[in-house]
């Protein structure tokens, strides 16, 4: 198990973070951390509060608690500022801009960067990871297949040169073969050194690429899992059921 590193190496430190929709607390005070170069998975059944946790980290829902990024607190109501700090979310349902072309989507990913050379460099990185996006550059994003749209969503996030990538169920609605391809790309990104926090309902797949995982149920972290120590998935199934 990766033991809690020093505050200096810790990329993301979520402490006592809760979130509410109106009067309903969808996420009870929760602690989550991501160390340097780590890929951490958030597992849990439908309605466990996984997406809410991601949205709360970004400040997209009303929330309380603290989120530190490399030791510095992130503002709690400004997703724009989080993005500017390099904390970037690929939202559930991808959130690509359907009427725009693939190129325009990527351009918007690099919205905060002004340099042309830097833009080219990032775009090359995206194309090397997802060559298909290059082929589809002038196509309208809404006409892409589900898998390609997910690639575009991740590619667009990469265009902002994230320091940590947050992904909310990238496998949603995709064929198993495509899911493996996407998760493979994420794993590759992580091996390059990019810390990733990945929400995933399909636990077995996520545990294959994650170094650590949290299990969420009814708005709380109920367990921290070391994938190497999971002997059988019955153990996880047990949590899902209870």
């Amino acid at each position: 198990m990766t033991e809690a590193g020093s505050a200096a190496t810790r990329v993301l430190d979520v402490a006592g973070l809760s979130a509410r929709y109106g009067h309903i607390e969808a996420l009870h005070p929760t602690d989550v951390r991501v160390e340097d170069r780590e890929l951490v998975a958030i597992l849990g059944p439908n309605g466990a509060g996984k997406s809410t946790l991601m949205r709360a980290i970004m400040g997209l829902v009303e929330n309380a608690g603290t989120v530190r990024f490399r030791g510095r607190p992130l503002p709690r109501r400004a997703p724009e500022a989080c993005a500017a700090d390099g904390v970037v979310l690929v939202p559930e349902g991808r959130g690509i801009f359907g009427p725009m072309s693939v190129a325009e989507n990527l351009e918007l990913g690099a919205y905060l960067s002004g340099s042309k050379a830097e833009f080219e460099r990032r775009q090359e990185r995206v194309f090397s990871l997802f060559p298909r996006l290059k082929e589809r550059l002038s196509q309208v994003a809404g006409s892409l297949s589900g898998g390609e749209q997910q690639m575009l969503a991740i590619g667009r996030a990469l265009m902002s040169d994230p320091k940590i990538l947050l992904l909310d169920e990238p496998s949603l609605g995709l064929a198993p073969r495509v899911v493996e391809e996407i998760l493979g790309s994420l794993s590759a990104l992580n091996r390059e050194g990019l810390p990733i926090l990945l929400v995933e309902q399909k636990a077995p797949l996520a545990l294959k690429i994650a170094q650590r995982a949290y299990l969420l149920s009814v708005g709380r972290v109920i367990a921290e899992i070391d994938p190497r120590k999971v002997s059988s998935y019955d153990e996880i199934a047990h949590y899902y059921l209870s």
Binding site: P79, E80, V90, G95, M100, Y111, A157
Partner: peptide, 10 residues
Amino acid sequence: GSEDAARALG
């Protein structure tokens, strides 16, 4: 297109 997605991009 998507306010959340736009905000998440800064």
